[in-house]
Amino acid sequence: MISYILRRTFAAVILLLVVTAVTFAIFFLLPRLAGQTADQLAQQYIGKSPSAADIAAVKSNLGLDDPLYLQYWHFIKGIVSGATYDLGPTTTQCNAPCFGYSFKTHVEVWPQLTSRLPVTISLAAGAAVMWLVSGVAIGVISALKPGSFFDRSFMGVALAGVSLPMFFTGNLALLLFTYQWPIFGRTYVPFTENPAQWANTLFPAWCSLALLYSAIYARLTRSGMLETMNEDFIRTARAKGLRERKVVVRHGLRAALTPIITVFGMDLGLLLGGALITETVFSLHGVGEYAVQGIKDNDLPPILGVTLLAALFVVVANLLVDLLYAAADPRVRLS
């Protein structure tokens, strides 16, 4: 078990290195290959009509005239052992994990990530609870009466939920619940400050996000349940004289849920890396919004930071899913 986790962790580190290298390559290497010079790049981060000396200064400060592998190495080194920056009258120490600073605003990336993460976690966790509960419930009820009016109408709604873009559902939710009938708050309040206000503000965002996902989960649960309820062990459970409710929940759902855990873990991991669109629509200052800003400004360090964070969440979620799966299904042995 321990050795399993160690091996997985090692693999995860390699994966994260690859992910950062690929991100690095997309934003730095490809433009270079396409003929962009370090000067042109540096110019994107200075004001209007910079002198040659300005460009040179910015270039050297951002390390843009170093070879690319060295720039990448500095980034990795900063995460592991911190870095020292010369961004004012005195140098500043950026402790590990140091994700560097924004090329554009020169603001350090790591404090931004940590201050934004609670928002993203709040959004993802709340929505996850919602979609899991509603999706699974709808899926189970549909599966128990396939072809019924309930089944048909909810699967129709589910299809709509999957197909509608967040821009539509999110803006509609905003329009209805915060503009026309302002029953929900609009300014994010940390959970630690006021849990009721926190939930009240996030509710429309949760609903919109949950609509998207619960649709998928309802379908997953439905097909899983349909399959499981035909299993021999369900017949056995019934042959024991168990009440049908117990057969469905204890025997059917228990088995049908296990594969859903996998999907759920990955979805949650991805979301924790930033719900880009939802955060944008609902004006939530999470890591996704930070990534959007970074992409807009062609600002590599924030992009790398968020990418790395998202990859980390996915990797951790993946590991947790495997552990959970092993716990849920005794037939699975970790090796």
């Binding site: 981060y45 200075i46 004001g47 209007k48 009509s49 910079p50 002198s51 000396a53 300005d54 200064a57 910015v58 050297s60 400060n61 010369d86 961004l87 004012g88 009258p89 554009k104 605003t105 020169h106």
Partner: peptide
């Protein structure tokens, strides 16, 4: 300009000796 690079730099262009001065940092 290596640190505060985002504003305009007219003073740098028009002040005498502005092209030589490296800034207070």
């Amino acid at each position: 300009r290596d640190v505060l690079s985002l504003g305009p730099n007219y003073f740098q262009q028009f002040l005498d000796g502005g092209d030589k001065y490296k800034g207070p940092y």
